[in-house]
Write a protein that binds this DNA or RNA. Sequence first.
DNA 1: TCGAGCTTTCACAACTTTGTGAACATTGGC
DNA 2: GCCAATGTTCACAAAGTTGTGAAAGCTCGA
Lengths: 163, 163
Amino acid sequence: MTEPVIDPRLADYRERFALVLTNFGMQRMVARVYAALMVAESPTTTMPELAESLQASAGAISGAVKTLTTIGMVERVPAPGSRRDHFRIADNGWYDTVMHKYRVMAQEIIDLAGDGVETVGEDSVAGHRLDEMRAFYAFIQSEMEEILQHWEKARDARRAART
Amino acid sequence: MTEPVIDPRLADYRERFALVLTNFGMQRMVARVYAALMVAESPTTTMPELAESLQASAGAISGAVKTLTTIGMVERVPAPGSRRDHFRIADNGWYDTVMHKYRVMAQEIIDLAGDGVETVGEDSVAGHRLDEMRAFYAFIQSEMEEILQHWEKARDARRAART
DNA sequence: TCGAGCTTTCACAACTTTGTGAACATTGGC
DNA sequence: GCCAATGTTCACAAAGTTGTGAAAGCTCGA
């Protein structure tokens, strides 16, 4: 078993980062790969590099990378002069993905609660509970659009300020 | 095996409801109990009623109810004239709990990203990535306070309007 | 078109999670 | 204070999840 060549302090931090993402509901290996890309000093990283650094099999890396690229948190980068695939954290990937997920979830709950109101009747006890749930998520959904716009403005200002 | 006495249409809806919560990351049985309380027509429900309706063991119900009361989504209601414990969906439990969870998660990420910036150095490639992540969650956290206040106002108006 | 280098897929084993059933603990009425 | 009704805990079995290793599949350059 070869030891990975990486600053132990950085490896510790990377694993802690992955652990937090795991608590969010992200799969273990997916979280570790994301964390590795997040703390990587080089702009892009290859699958063998990830496998060695994380001490994981090529198969596990392949699956995790596929998940991350599918949901748009990581992107495959064309790498002239190299036959290996290169990957990096997608610009905006984090919040685009998170926000998209929340938007979908909110819509799902709105529909679900709406169906419930129809099922139990809108003037029943359960009907009122479900209707308030629906109203809450409809409210959150509408607020989210506004927040996202505010963030994009704030982010652009930050980036511009970074000389 | 005794068949549960419940409208099949309602039982289907209840299971669908639980499934959506499960996709949110809630444990299966916890989600089923919450769904059962949500669609119940009676204001409160006992553990044996939940066990029969959900066709689950008393042990599983006990565990799920404990989880739900601990996080504040369900409350134990004193029931004069009955030796059984009665439970109901906590008023405000849903969004208090969800919002509290998000607030904690946001703070955790802010701290995590902050530590990362210190670990890798703020002028490194990774430092910039981590710093933007930190800024995003700090932004979300501050916006959330405002949203919650708006919702409470909107909710009170809704309730007042319900004659 | 062939071969070398990468990546993907898949069966399996290790591990984790979840719910049951039964024993144990608690509570309230008599 | 006792007994019966309820609630809780725990060991274990079933089910599900995750990562490995190896084999199969691509792809690019010659």
